[in-house]
Structure formats: structure tokens, C-alpha cells
Design a protein around this nucleic acid. Structure first.
Lengths: 212, 212, 212, 212
DNA sequence: CATGAATGAGGTTTCATTCAT
DNA sequence: TATGAATGAAACCTCATTCAT
């Protein structure tokens, strides 16, 4: 599994018949299951196929290699989280800055916690599978949503630059990663959520005030 | 390489003789070299031994298995960074809060950048090798240093709680990870460093002000 | 692809309808294309079907297995060459021996060169597919044509025995094989053609003289 | 087994200890055995290792891949035949041309027949393994020996050009191939040998006479 | 007749680890 | 202690072939 070449991550074949769509989803879901039950290094394509109730050959009809399968799973997860954040951003338009920040951060934390186990499992495969690239791509997308939201803030003169938003997103992501990897209690999660809100609020305030 | 059992990560034999120490260090350094030149999944024990100029057998005299070797490398790197931060904390005692934060953050960023390539390479093995555990341990240590420093701050009434410091450290670590994995230009690093300082300063201000 | 059992090499169903004939030819031609573009070991039935613009299933309607497909392609090629030689033999009747030989050899060389690329590609599959059997069969046929021609030679008393003709044909075939596999320049081909004519002429003269 | 890239055919590791030399030879010999007993397409690296009494891993210590193993076997065989022909050429120096030719051809036929089964088996792998390249290389070598011999012929004025010798060698090789692949009786072999001698003798006479 | 999704045995290759020398 | 040959389980992936639609 060399992750140096970022090629051929796209699915190999577009399902035409109805049954293949089912198969593709079964495989993707099975990959998550195996990831959770066996861990990243015990995940083999054969095991995934077994769990999905298909043969290995079928798996390879839709994913050209193991990486592309894991990449797809990773992408799903990231897309889900990104979507939640985008929704929150859309909802928080025209509210005061601190409210905006709060809702965005909370949406992110909640989306991650929603499938905390998967998040943790995926941290383990991300490196081998183009994770960083994907993270960057998703961060761009999220950043755009945040920026659009900030444009509508009534209480700031000019928005922070792109860079500040990026820093905030990656800081937030990193803190969540540490948190999730420590297997936190619900109470801990609650406290961390609060602190994360505070972290981002104070940063946003500082970053926008500078130009205001 | 199952990372589920966190046993036997410690080096097998403590080198007493000078020759052994040299060997151990050669192996550890070779591991880093191979990591950089071949990537995480092309790192094999044989290759490391070759690069170190010893036989595989010898490698296994000092490290019970591959994981323990990588763990040691990881530990080295983390210890180095932690040391730099601790030094900065010691130096910043009795200075104003914002100054303290600035110097701490800058020490962290600079330490990471000092061997940026190694940092990136290690992100790739961390998951398989007890990285999260190690991160937690190092974070504890760093947190203590930060807390001790904060105790001496002249301009705050009471220090932030443990949790706030932990959040800050993990946020900072996460942001650096994203940054490093994107292969940033020097200019980008400079800007990120500034922003990271701002992020932490505003957070520390907010977190201590609450109790102040 | 075990070639030990020489069964079931014949096409499965004789195409009666026009559409079928077109399909069969498309498949056969596609096999050649794939052979040239991907090489012998990258030739898969699916790939051939794709190139032919039909589904694998359809391919298997006309060829019971992969071998039979390749066998058919091989047969086509050999038949083509044999036909050319037979024509030459028919044309050369009643001419002097050396003229007969010249025209026969040249017809063979030219027929091979006509589709040199296919010839080379087929050398690579011949072994797996009943090539030797086919070669023998085609050589019988060609030998008959040559013998019939020789019967009409005005300048020999009695024809050479079967064996001599067979030796000549296989020598000629082997030399062409070596030549083609070396990717010869046109000039080389021209020289080789001359020499091959000389080789066969002198042999025929010697082989017939013995009995004459 | 893609044979397009003619790289990495050389053995991977030079045996240092005595025992490894034994191992290498056992593997090579086992490959021949498996080739004979199972045929070319049933030859698997695992099977070869089993037959050699070692593990697959050991096989791969000495041969970087399956091709390189088969290439080595092929090379052995060709070298053996080339050696026999070279010996014959050395012995036939200063004899009359027809005698030279006779002894050379007979040496070739006899060397091939000596291990007829291997010859046939190898025809089947040659294509996948760099056979043509090897054939060319060995033919060069043999040609040199033949030319050196011809220089000493008392009864020719000037030797035939390189090309004629090459044609002769490849014709001879091709005829032998056809013969061997037909599973000939001893009587057939005897007759073929005679005819082959005649073929080459008459060609050599013709090819040298031209310049004489 | 055509389609193409599914099959799964089987092949090649890697690499952490051991142990006789 | 050092060596490095040997191990072999286990991973990934291919592809000829079938059969329900």
C-alpha cells in the first residue's frame, strides 16, 4: 500500500444495473464494519468482501485497489461532517459573530461525535490513503461556507482573511482528533465542546477586530 | 503490525557498553532515513538494518519488534519538541500572559519546523505504533510546564483549568499537522506562526479572564 | 490456460446469420488488436470483448474458451500464409527447380512480412494454444502444394522425399521467426530474403540431385 | 508475468555462505523438474520452492521474481548447447568445409536431443521471459565460433558473410524446434539430422562459392 | 441472443521474525 | 554478540467462466 502515487482512487466501474448499486454500498458499509471490529491493519479486502456477502472479485470490480476503497469510506465520512457544518453556517447567517462561531463549532463537534468510532478508526487509515489531500479539499469547502457566513455578520467591519479561517478549522480538527483518540467520557466531551467554542470565538473576535 | 496490544514497546536490552549505544543510535537514525527515503510502508526491518550497517539479527537484539523501533523514533521526536517547549516555558516565567503564550507557541512551531520532514514522516507511522498514547503522555508533560509558567504570570488572577491548556496544546498540534502535511512555503509558515500565536493568546486571555 | 488437453478448440457455434458472422470477425480482429496493444499476458477475454464492442457473454457464445479464440486467430494467420504459398506453387509449375524454389520462398517471406506485427505477437501465444499442432497441420498442407509443384519440374528426375520438404519448410519458418523477433530493418529483410532463397535452392538442388 | 520490461532479470543476491549456493542450484533444478512434470502454465513459484525443499521466501531471496527464475533456467540450457557447438567448432578447425559443417550441425542436434524434454518445455516459457533476446545473444556467440572455424577452412577462398551464418543458425534452430515439438522417434531424429547436415552443407557451399 | 455482475481458486510477492553458525 | 539464510503466513489482486436478467 504505497500512498505516494495519488492515482486511481476513483471507482473503477459505474454501476449500471440496480443490483450493483446495492453491492457497492454493501461493500462500503462492510469496510466500516471491519474497520471497527478488526482495526485498520487487520482490514483485508477479503475480509471486507466476506462481511459484505460478496466475493473479492466483486469488490475489485468497483474499487481498483484497497486504497481506493478506504479512500471512498474516508470521503464519505468527511463529506458527512462537511455537510453538517455547511448547514450550520447557512443557519447562522446574519447572527452575531460569536453566535455564528458557536453554532459552527458545535455542528462540527456534534457531527464528529455522531460517529465517533468511525472517526477514530479512520484516523488510522487516513495516512495511507490520501487523507491529507482529502482533508485539504474538505477544508477548502468548509472554509468557503464559513466565509460566506461571515460576510453576513452584522457586527464585524471586515471578515478575517482566508488564512485565519483555515487555521481555525485545522485547530478545531486537531483538537477533536486528540479528544476522540483519548476515548473521552460524555462529560469530557461536553467540556471540550465548550472550550472549543471559546477558543474559536476568541480567535474570531481577535482576527476580525484587527481589520475592523 | 497489530497495534492493539500495547505491550513490549520498550527496548529489549539497555545498552551498557559504548559500542551498543552507538549501534542503537545508528539503527534509530537509519529508521528515520528510511522513513524519509522510502515512506512508511516501504520501511522494513531489513532495510533499516542495512542502512544502519548492521544485520537484522542485531536490530532485533535491541528492539523486540518493529513497533518498538518506530515507537522509539517517535518518542525521540516528541521528547525533542517537548524539551524545546519546556525550555521556552522556563524562560518566559514572570512575563505577561501574552508574552508567555507567544514564546511557548513559537517554540513549538519552531521545534516542529526544525525537522519538518521527520514530523510528516512520523505522522504516517504514529497510528500503528502507539502514537495517541505517546501524544497524551507528552501533552501531560508539556501541560505541566505550561501550567507552572502560568503560575508566575503577573497579570492573571487565577490560571485556566487543566482542560483549557490541553485544548490549546492539541489545537496547536492539529493545526501544525495540517500545515506540515500541506508542504508549506516559508512565507506560509511565517504567517501560520503568527496566526497560531494570536489564536492561543486570545484563547488564554479568554480562559483566564473568566476567572480573573 | 492448460494447453495439455487438445480438446474443444473448435468454435462452439457456426454463425449462420450475417450478424453473427460480423460479430465473430469483430471478436477475432479485436483479439489481434489487444495482442498488439497489450501483449500476450495482458490479453483477457473481457478486454477482447470490450475492444470488439460486445460483452464477454457474447464472446463465449462463439468461442467456448480463451484458447479456442486464440487458436482461431492463429489459424487465420497460418491459413493466410499457407494460401499465399499455395498460390505461388501453382504459379511456378513447370518452371525450373531453382525458379520454383525462389518463388515459393519469396511468397512465404512476403506473406509473413505482410503482417509482421501479428506474426510476432502470435509467436507468443502459440505455445499455449496448440501452435505446434497447427504448425504441423499447415506444414502438411504446404508440403503437399510444394510436392505437387515439384512433380512438374522439368529439370529433376525424381522429387526429394517428404522429409526434405518438411525440413526445408521448418528451417524457413524458424529463420523467419528469428528474423521477425529481432525487429529487422527493411534492408535486413531484403538480405534475409535473398539468403533464404539461396538456402532453399541449394538444399533442393542437393536433395533432388541425390536421387536424380 | 508481463515480459515487456526486460529489467531485473539478474539474481537478487549473491550467495555468500556455502549453504546458499546449494539452495540456488536446488531451486534452479527444481524449476526444470516442475517444468517437465507440470508444464509451463502449471509452474508456480510455490511449487518450485516445494520441489526444491525450501520455502517460497527463500526462492525470492535469490530470484526477484518468477521471470528471473525462468530466465536463469533458459540461460543455462542455451549456454549448454552453445558450449557444445563451440567445442565442435574448435575440433573441426582446418578440416574441409563440408566436414566442418557436418560436425557443427551434428553437435547442435545432439546437444538439443541430449535434453530434448527440457528443450521442448523451455520453448513454452521462452516468449514470456526474454527468450528472443537470449536467443539473439547466444546466436552471436555461436556465430563467432563458427566464423572462427571457417577462417581455418583450407578449401574456401573467402568466408561467407555474417548474415549467412546467422541464417544458417536460425534455420537449424527452427527446424530442430519443429522436430522436437513433434515428439519424434529416434529414427526420425536420425533422418532429420542427416537432412539438416545436408541443408547446411549445401548452403555453406553455395554461400562461400559465391565469393570464392 | 446479449448482457455484465458475480464468482473464487489460485497466483505472485512481501516481510517480521528466528536461530544455527 | 553478530550474522544473514530461511521461514511461511498472509496480503493483494487477476481473470476465465457462468448464469440470472
Amino acid at each position: 500500500m504505497a500512498a505516494h502515487a495519488l492515482v486511481a482512487f476513483e471507482p473503477r466501474k459505474t454501476p449500471i444495473q440496480a443490483r450493483s448499486t446495492v453491492t457497492v454500498e454493501a461493500i462500503s458499509e462492510a469496510a466500516v464494519q471491519v474497520l471497527l471490529s478488526h482495526g485498520a491493519e487487520r482490514l483485508t479486502t477479503t475480509r471486507v468482501a466476506d462481511r459484505a456477502g460478496v466475493s473479492v472479485g466483486t469488490l475489485y470490480q468497483y474499487y481498483p485497489n484497497k486504497q481506493s476503497l478506504l479512500f471512498a469510506v474516508l470521503e464519505n465520512h468527511f463529506n458527512h461532517v462537511a455537510l453538517r457544518v455547511e448547514e450550520a453556517c447557512a443557519n447562522a447567517c446574519h447572527k452575531p459573530l460569536s453566535e455564528m462561531t458557536k453554532e459552527t463549532v458545535e455542528a462540527f463537534v456534534d457531527a464528529k461525535m455522531e460517529r465517533a468510532d468511525i472517526s477514530v478508526a479512520l484516523y488510522r487509515v487516513a495516512g495511507d490513503v490520501g487523507g491529507p489531500t482529502l482533508v485539504k479539499r474538505v477544508n477548502q469547502r468548509t472554509r468557503k461556507a464559513v466565509e460566506a457566513m461571515l460576510e453576513t455578520a452584522p457586527d464585524i467591519k471586515s471578515p478575517p482573511d482566508k488564512f485565519a479561517v483555515e487555521i481555525m478549522l485545522s485547530a478545531m480538527g486537531g483538537a477533536m482528533r486528540s479528544l476522540l483518540e483519548s476515548g473521552p467520557s460524555p462529560a469530557t466531551v461536553r467540556k471540550a465542546r465548550e472550550q472549543l467554542v471559546l477558543l474559536c470565538q476568541s480567535y474570531m473576535a481577535a482576527a476580525t477586530a484587527k481589520r475592523g
